[in-house]
Nucleic acid binder design. Sequence first.
DNA 1: CGCGACGTTGATTTGCCTCAACGATTGTGG
DNA 2: CCACAATCGTTGAGGCAAATCAACGTCGCG
Lengths: 195, 195
Amino acid sequence: MTNLSPLLDYFNKLIPLTDQEELLVTNLFKPRLYRKRQYVLQEGDVCNQFNFVVSGCLRLYKIDNKGTIHIIQFTAENWWLMDIGSFHQRSASELNIDALEDTMVLQISYDNLIYLYLQCPKFDRIFRVLVENSFVSLQKRLLLNISSTAEERYHSFLQTYSHLDNRISQAQIAAFLGVTPEFLSRLRNKQAKKP
Amino acid sequence: MTNLSPLLDYFNKLIPLTDQEELLVTNLFKPRLYRKRQYVLQEGDVCNQFNFVVSGCLRLYKIDNKGTIHIIQFTAENWWLMDIGSFHQRSASELNIDALEDTMVLQISYDNLIYLYLQCPKFDRIFRVLVENSFVSLQKRLLLNISSTAEERYHSFLQTYSHLDNRISQAQIAAFLGVTPEFLSRLRNKQAKKP
DNA sequence: CGCGACGTTGATTTGCCTCAACGATTGTGG
DNA sequence: CCACAATCGTTGAGGCAAATCAACGTCGCG
């Protein structure tokens, strides 16, 4: 059976759980393996799972009307990924999630999350904090995009995602920064020469 | 005394309130008038108020390191405005809020909101939904910025903010779209000739 | 081995910015 | 209530950041 301890550790760090609560989590979260390139969520579907990444790496992205991919977020070990809007409003998602590596997640369905809230209000608070944190990182993402050049965004990426730098291809990084792979290449080139 | 009915109406539409709950709201929300150009929140401060706009119009914006203003959101009658991240994490805000017109708001302080949660858990849900909705609109904002040209963003603005179109100057709209006033002027010019 | 994905480099184009100048409107102090 | 300043929208000329298109070498993988 898959090890749930990364998830229990995560919860316990926020608010310590009782044995009974740990049991609830153990029963309601299901492990699932996604293969590299496999969809976790495809646009048009309703996002029905909260995903906690145990190992591997996922990306959340939008495809614009020219067919270009814009990556909103990468998620690796010990973080969450879902389309919060689609999940809570039970509406069709405009976003896609797929796996950049073989990825193991622990996931809870919408119905089971509602059940979890009813059984134990403590999780109300845990997930409220989780959504607030998602809001904050989304806001950072927006502010960065709005008010920085591609070069500044690249530096910022290297800081926030330094642990992922060598796991993600430059093409993916470019799609995250909102520039072409060619332009990112030129940026890196300029970097290497300067300092 | 200022009329609280727009706020009570807003809550009642989400979840009907009892008389006692309405009384709580009446006691904890305070009216405040902001004059045109007055700050509601200034960067560096902690956002300590949830604001519900009764009349007038506010803007939420960031100033980048070149001194350029980037408007994240306009808020007029019957909507909320605050820096959610700063408010919940009790951290210094990078954002500013000020008034584009004389604006009447009903506001509740952080401490009073916590008190409201304790007195009546129903508001836990109401404000959870409120934050979820804020998340969704922020995500829309990001996707639009990431995946559209200035022209497409302008069209989208005209649709979502059609009621505000003639209340907001073009310079403000340009700062919202992320273009210079000159360029917006050229866009409009091109528009007028085409169809 | 061969094919497709990836990163690089060059030449050209384009979307948007900058700077500057000008009327029209708004606001303000004398 | 007028005069002057400040703000706002428009237009033109020129510039730059980043995209596009195209070509080429290198890998990793089936």
